[in-house]
């Protein structure tokens, strides 16, 4: 039998999902990115305990409130956090975004987006740009393999224990140590090299 679902209750489900994930990630509570509370939060009888902040770092489109949570995680803790989410049966992995913050910042940020209903949780991992090493989450979530391959070839991140590091999108004769999504990669130069 299918569980009942109701269009109207989407928002309250998102609230429940978000409060559940807050409980799950209690250990990492101080790492939550809590931006300044804004007056927009407290419109129309919201539960201030569940949503103490509205304008978060990452915004979310949609017609509800911004049901998004982002947490900075140390690379060593990543597997533990992902395992906690999975054990708590919370959401599914949407994708992994790799983000080159540029040579000045000297860091690469990797965002793991999880969603349940309207609620999105983003785990953010920052690593050094030169020696970008993160653990693979494939042992926990096998379907992350494609996303991790993309990270490897597009940003040159070393992923420990990932099952496959072959090229997924780029051609086989793609020059080594050239990563298209790094900021120093220049399209014009690349065209000339073709």
């Amino acid at each position: 039998m299918l569980p009942e679902f109701d269009n109207k209750s989407g928002q309250s489900q998102a609230e429940q999902a978000l409060s559940r994930v807050e409980q799950l990630l209690e250990t990492w509570r101080e790492k939550l990115n809590k931006p300044q509370p804004s007056e927009r939060t407290l419109v129309g009888g919201e539960n201030p305990l569940i949503f103490p902040y509205a304008k978060r770092r990452i915004m979310l489109t949609g017609n509800g409130r911004p049901d998004v949570l982002d947490i900075s995680v140390h690379p060593d803790e990543l597997l533990e956090v992902v395992q906690t989410l999975l054990d708590g049966d919370w959401g599914y992995l949407i994708t992994i975004t790799g983000l080159d913050l540029g040579p000045e910042a000297g860091e690469i940020e990797i965002l793991y987006h999880f969603a349940e209903g309207a609620a999105v949780v983003t785990l953010s991992v920052r690593v050094e740009r030169e020696t970008a090493v993160i653990p693979s989450i494939c042992p926990i979530i096998p379907s992350a393999s494609f996303f991790e391959r993309e990270l490897v070839e597009m940003l040159g991140i070393t992923i420990l224990n990932t099952p496959n590091t072959d090229h997924l999108f780029l051609p086989d004769d793609w020059p080594a140590d050239t990563y298209p999504l790094r900021k120093e990669f220049n399209t014009e130069n690349q065209q000339a090299a073709n």
């Binding site: 269009n7 989407g10 998102a14």
Partner: peptide, 11 residues
């Protein structure tokens, strides 16, 4: 049971 149109209505 997953459909963004229902779970997180947009537009």
């Amino acid at each position: 049971i997953r459909d963004v149109r229902v779970d997180a209505p947009y537009a």
